[in-house]
Design a protein around this nucleic acid. Structure first.
Lengths: 249, 249
DNA sequence: CGCCGTGTTGACTATTCTCAACCCAGGTGG
DNA sequence: CCACCTGGGTTGAGAATAGTCAACACGGCG
């Protein structure tokens, strides 16, 4: 099994064999989770970086009165919290959505990787920038789009991201989320999620049953969602940086 | 006039005189903007880091059909785009909300700062983490909160942030935004923004007229907003890091 | 003076939520 | 093996929240 983080980072830059080996070795301490377990909770002090190897997870925040907002989905190859270890405590939680395998990379190992592998540093930086850009797009999504557009946009995004790590099969993929979780993601009630999915099905854009998503018409779905994949920066942008030597830091 | 970025970063860590000098010198090339001008536009290649010295600005994204979402506000001391220079082109725009003074810091200068001033590096890192946490909170805000709560939350946040850089006067501050901009921020129509502000005024929580915001009852406002200032990480968290030597990177 | 950008209001509409009921499939225990 | 239980998913009816449109008010500025 190819370490999915390698596949992901190579969307941005070409890694050397040495880089890849280092990544593999960093990800050797593994923990297995069941479905819907917290990997790290709000208020915890972050102890290690969690790299998702298999399964799905999400970042969420809960209000005092129980309302919950999911703010990110994680797919294999994603580091859930690389950027928080300077902070004293988590201001949100991370939980699995399915059974999952997670590598726990100690902070020191991350720092060593950064110190010794400039390509990895660059690619990790790229990856956090993409995470941020994705979050910005989510603000646009919940702020401006209708329920129908929102749902279309979310499913477009997930499909593109899963495809980038080789987890699609033609125009379908696994998506182990309930309608209630989709609601917590999009700021909609489960009832409305249900009706919105029916509308998308009626328009022959997609099917989502059980844990299986099939895109019936990707172009039409993108149009319906006003989806512009720019923000995922999947176009191997690092190649240019490689040529001109990139960052010095 | 104290360089506001120094004041901001000192919310997190103690800077040496040498650090401060370096920051001052980095911010010497200045540009002046009028109100509502783009500082950098979607599609542009980022050339320098824009540090806001005076005035207000925002980050926004426009959909093809004209809908606009504001995704961040910038106040003096904020670096608008420190983290994007690895990317080939901007996936969003940054514009002033008022007349503004902006320092343009070349990428090389940033890289030198990072290489030679570990405290600054740390504080800049902290600052980007706070920006991200803020963005996450905005997703929660538009996703879960009602119009009334949303507005209360946004104004709470801005008040706290302005206070952290010394731009409040008692319980009031300058906020040069129109109701239409508030709408684009919160995902509400201008009409509804207007009515929501009236409700907040009726409940004696705040007043917002012209460019002047007065908080009449900060505690009540926080409660109404379910506002928890945790995510702004304003509690001088860096002090701990200083003691134990912090990052090695 | 008159214009324009902003704020305000009323009437009507659309979208989304809530609540409550019911269905269905998969897993468990008797 | 079957009955039941439970966690999703689905449906309908009615209510609440927020949007749209159109008109008007107000103030600063050319």
């Amino acid at each position: 099994m190819l370490n999915p983080v390698i596949r992901k980072l190579e969307n941005f830059t070409k890694l050397s064999d040495d880089d890849k080996l280092a990544l593999d070795q960093a990800a050797r301490q593994v923990r297995v989770y069941g479905s819907r377990e917290d990997i790290i909770s709000e208020g915890d002090r972050p102890e290690a970086v969690n790299l998702l190897l298999e399964g799905y997870a999400c970042r969420y925040k809960q209000l005092e009165d129980g309302r919950r907002q999911i703010m990110a989905y994680f797919v294999p190859g994603d580091m859930c919290d690389i950027n928080v270890f300077i902070l004293r405590q988590m201001d949100h939680s991370i939980a699995t959505l399915s059974p999952a395998t997670v590598a726990q990379i100690p902070h020191d190992t991350i720092l060593d990787l950064i110190a010794q592998h400039p390509r990895i540093t660059q690619a990790l930086w790229w990856s956090t920038l993409v995470d941020e850009a994705t979050l910005r797009e989510w603000v646009v999504n919940v702020g401006q789009r209708s329920a129908y557009e929102r749902m279309a946009h979310l499913l477009c995004e997930l499909f593109f991201r899963l495809r980038a790590v080789g987890l699609t099969n033609g125009n379908s993929c696994i998506l182990p989320v309930t309608q209630s979780e989709l609601g917590d993601t999009l700021g909609l009630s489960t009832v409305h999620v249900n009706r919105t999915l029916q509308d998308l099905r009626r328009d022959r854009l997609l099917e989502l049953k059980g844990k299986h998503l099939s895109i019936l018409d990707l172009n039409a779905l993108q149009e319906a969602a006003l989806f512009n994949p720019n923000y995922l920066h999947l176009e191997h942008e690092g190649e240019a940086l490689n040529a001109n030597n990139g960052m010095r830091a």
